[in-house]
């Protein structure tokens, strides 16, 4: 197995882990962390798959470089909105998650 394919597989694992965290984490801060892990996994897949032949590929590397900068911008915006929500409501969780959990036993993925 080439190095690229190996890291792409690790990226796939990180992607699934991040996706599970994004759905299961009740706290918004945890969701933002999960979103970042999910993104890192996607970046690894992008670069790893392109380099599974063994040669470094500058095209996905450049894409991922811009992707990292966009990810930090999205994270900062999400954190700013989380702070605002916490200031207004006193809790950093989504109101739907708070209200739906007891009413709908299957949770947000049930519908």
């Amino acid at each position: 197995m080439s190095l690229g394919l190996f890291y792409a597989l690790v990226g796939g694992g990180l992607f699934a882990l991040g996706l599970a965290g994004l759905i299961l984490q009740p706290r918004l801060l945890g969701k933002i962390l999960a979103f970042n892990i999910l993104g890192s996994g996607a970046f690894l897949v992008l670069v790893g798959l392109a380099q599974r032949g063994g040669t470094p590929d500058p095209v996905p590397q450049a894409m991922v470089l811009t992707g990292i900068v966009v990810a930090v911008a999205a994270t900062a915006l999400a954190l700013a909105l989380t702070r605002r929500l916490a200031d207004l409501s006193g809790a950093a969780v989504l109101p739907e998650d708070d209200a739906r959990a007891p009413a709908n036993p299957r949770g947000p993925d049930g519908d």
């Binding site: 299961l24 009740p26 959990a101 036993p105 949770g107 947000p108 993925d109 049930g110």
Partner: peptide, 8 residues
């Protein structure tokens, strides 16, 4: 979220 839903 419900425990079974989380496991699913």
């Amino acid at each position: 979220m419900n425990r079974w839903a989380s496991v699913a």
